[in-house]
Design a protein around this nucleic acid. Sequence first.
DNA 1: TTTATAATATGATTTATGTCATGTTAGAAT
DNA 2: ATTCTAACATGACATAAATCATATTATAAA
Lengths: 233, 233
Amino acid sequence: MENGIESQCEQCIVRQFNSLRAMNKEELKKVSQGKTTKIVKKGETIFEEGEALKGVFCVRSGVSKLSKLSANGKDQTVKLAAKGMVIGQRSVIAEELSNLSATALNDMEVCFIPKEIIVNTLNTNPNFTMEVLRHMAHDLKEADDVIVNMSQKTVKQRVAAAFLYLKNNFGEDKDGFLLLTLSRDDIANVVGTATESCIRIISEFKKTGLLKNHGKKIGIVNEKGLQDLAERY
Amino acid sequence: MENGIESQCEQCIVRQFNSLRAMNKEELKKVSQGKTTKIVKKGETIFEEGEALKGVFCVRSGVSKLSKLSANGKDQTVKLAAKGMVIGQRSVIAEELSNLSATALNDMEVCFIPKEIIVNTLNTNPNFTMEVLRHMAHDLKEADDVIVNMSQKTVKQRVAAAFLYLKNNFGEDKDGFLLLTLSRDDIANVVGTATESCIRIISEFKKTGLLKNHGKKIGIVNEKGLQDLAERY
DNA sequence: TTTATAATATGATTTATGTCATGTTAGAAT
DNA sequence: ATTCTAACATGACATAAATCATATTATAAA
């Protein structure tokens, strides 16, 4: 179903850039035609920090972490990218080396869009450019929030916030378990803490009835409780 | 010298958006004509978190902190804006309430540019839009770096990095003192630490010959030493 | 000057969190 | 099933950094 894949990819671009009205059919076709689909296995990288990106990647399935290696050897996850999200735009737009690595947290399917197509669309379609701009403005706001949380919230609060984030952005199944299952280590990298601390806090949350688990799956039992914890001073 | 002020304001916009070639004379004049100049005294706010901005502000003199109040009542400075920088663009572009407060760290002069002018220029001048986009992409990268530093560096390392930042972004006088003099409390808000911790570390840096001071002015004595400290794991 | 107020400084103590060590469980490979 | 390995778990301890307390200076106001 080559057509199905193409249509999915178009939707991916459209959704990411919020530009249903900003790109016309022909432009979308152009974007789709440039794509190549790629399978990325869990743990493999899509691109590395310091790499010159030849284009952007659109997530078709699976989840990627965008992270940066610190001088102390620890990996800090800055953002998670799920289905429908485009990664690598910042570097392509700024014409800089990537400041982040993109690593698959589970098996993924991504489609590649050469930067020439992005750059060309930016140059010829002002509406598209405006949508990308709005999108980046939104990312910047989120980054500001993360900065404040990192410096002002305790690890416990950040872990609570991380689970709320996972629920809000990746959803849960009928039984109330998070659709995105991450290892404790992955969560620790998002929260910016030691794996042991993360494990300890999750154990505590299970004991106090905030979380539940079934095998590797984790579910939120008391969302209000997590929110109170995450927000309270 | 109304003309002088106008020309300074034009330069301000031009520099910020890196768009010397992106905006032509007439467009610049349009921007300048919309401006109103405003004096902001030390400690006063230019705008508050949650406010709907009617335009952007261009810093003519003085320095503003962009900060966010945390639920614990502490203020986290996300960015400092000096002469030539524009503040408030993110919110205006995203058409959202401001996510940050802007407060004068010393007496300031800012010029106001109504959002209609910015929005109009964005709609009619694609080059301008692209420059704004590149600029925002750069801000986003810097924000990513701050996130990693916040979670992976010690307070001491972040204080060291803050002084290097102040030197690189605001310069120093002939005697090697930083041109931007901040209170320990302001520095603590940038670093994301308690004021006492900040004071202690600065005292230590003076003892170990990394910093010097003359009254309120602080100077970097051993830049290499600060860099090593800030980078080392 | 004198007084008042804010900024800087430093000690003592507590707390959160990282680190190290060790053990347990679960899933994959044989 | 058995073995192996990685993920999860928990205790003990070390340490960075916040907090609380109290001086000591500067700076502004009277």
